[in-house]
């Protein structure tokens, strides 16, 4: 499924909003308790480059015969997203950064095709099937509150949000209105906030 380009963040209770992670979209296939394929967009199998995931992802899944859709990311030592490290890793440098997989959809589970079921059901099942671990997590999402997430992401330094219709089924090709990639409106800040700063924000709010 290929997302359409959205114009601006919006609020709509029919949509689930999450960060558009600045990584590479990838489908992970787990069968027989093993990660057997990791198909990154526009590339051959990324399984070798992301070898750390082969053990971890199946361990965190409660089901077998699973096909996940999500993003492959590389984090630097501070836990921040780093596209350069990701590029090096995809290029075969296994020492580059720490790999992570953020799942956002589940197309098959228990050897069963779920693509015709609505996104809300797939997502619920995904949350129940994949336990958060050190490297693989379910992408955190907000229901209906697209503008709020956009504000948060702007502080966070990410450039886009993903908006998915809860009642849409998975289909190949263009997603139309079922899935939008919406750019976060640029804010006055030119530099990205530091991770240390972000983590202190709740304290600032309590004090004020």
């Amino acid at each position: 499924m290929q997302p359409s380009e959205g114009v601006a963040p919006f609020d709509d209770p029919r949509y689930l909003f999450e960060a558009w992670w600045p990584g590479i979209r990838a489908q992970a296939w787990v069968e027989g308790g093993q990660l057997i394929r990791l198909r990154a967009e526009g590339l051959a199998d990324a399984l070798v480059a992301f070898g750390e995931l082969t053990d971890e992802l199946p361990e965190q899944l409660l089901d077998d015969g699973v096909l996940l859709d999500g993003w492959l990311l590389a984090l630097d030592e501070g836990g921040w997203l780093d596209t350069e490290l990701l590029r090096r890793r995809l290029g075969g440098d296994r020492s580059a950064g720490r790999p992570a997989y953020v799942a956002s959809d589940m197309l098959w589970t228990n050897g069963e095709d779920w693509q015709r079921r609505p996104f809300s059901a797939r997502r619920e099942r995904l949350a129940a099937t994949l336990r958060d671990g050190d490297r693989c997590v379910v992408s955190h999402a907000l229901l209906g509150e697209g503008t709020l997430l956009a504000e948060a992401l702007a502080r966070f330094g990410l450039g886009a949000i993903s908006a998915r219709r809860l009642d849409a089924r998975y289909r190949s090709g263009s997603a139309g209105e079922a899935w939008l990639r919406v750019p976060v409106a640029p804010v006055a800040q030119t530099e990205r906030p530091r991770l240390a700063l972000i983590q202190r924000l709740p304290f600032l709010d309590e004090a004020g």
Partner: peptide, 23 residues
Amino acid sequence: EPTNITDLMAALEASVAAARSDR
């Protein structure tokens, strides 16, 4: 300790919470 992807998610949550309380 080195941070991982769950910390990143937590940081995102904190950012959302901050945006919400600002509102």
